[in-house]
Amino acid sequence: MDMDSALSLIASALRLSAPILCACLAGLWSERAGVVDIGLEGKLLAGAFAGAAVASLTGSAQLGLVAALAAALLLALLHGYASIDRGGEQIVCGMAINMIAAGATALCGAALFGEGGRTPALEGAARLAPLFAGQDAIALAAPCCAAATGFILFRTRFGLRLRAAGEHPHALEAAGVSVRRARYAAVAVCGLLCGLGGADLALAQAAGFLPGMSAGKGFIALAALVFAKWRPGAALLVCLAFGLLEACAIRLQGVALPLIGAVPVQAIQALPYLLTVILLAGFVGRANPPAASGVPFVKGR
């Protein structure tokens, strides 16, 4: 492989990993604060739709981005209300978010644009153009978000409290800090990051919205989160690796490799899921989620 194609492979890996990284960091915030979120997929989708719809109606990618953030935030707060205030089953609720997003985006898309749920193709200022080395603004911002997440969660008082809400909420409450507020803050950041990822999907990677365009990226992000053992730095690396895998899968289609022969694309696509299963089973290392994630918090008497 020559230098040029290696560089272009890395560039496309970086580009493809951006939505996964955003969703993965979103899950990291939420789960670190004790709210399990399998609704990342739905929030990505909602962000992608709102972004594309508003960008298509106004012709401005910036307004589209704002709409994407707002839509995903709204769903995140719904998830927060059900799982923090109502003490609902967080996994069931995450599934509900996925269904609501899948239904609402396709329904609104069909009603607004009448093209079977897709938005019209975006052009010009309605898309996020590549800024640097073929990378759009969100693809460049995503690694910075990972760094910021690491700093905020592990180097600030706010982050310490947030992590305490996910590890030992009663200790946090005893210290006089509201677990509810910490969890809501985390869920809100989760929504914003998902919105960012969704906007990247619809405004930068594709030129518009297609029903179901998140295509399991929210679940890959969940896998990446397990892989990264809920750590931001590792999340960055894992998501880049998954992006690289995706870029390779596209390039290796029908190419015969030395020794192995042609690798089925499906095998490469299935690799992240398979590795996650193996890691979760503890055959290679151990991945332990934050202790109180998934447990509704009930104030002590």
Partner: peptide
């Protein structure tokens, strides 16, 4: 799908 999502949300959470 939307209706189904709201059912899951209402019953489950």
């Amino acid at each position: 799908v939307l209706v189904q999502g709201f059912v899951v949300l209402a019953v489950g959470c």
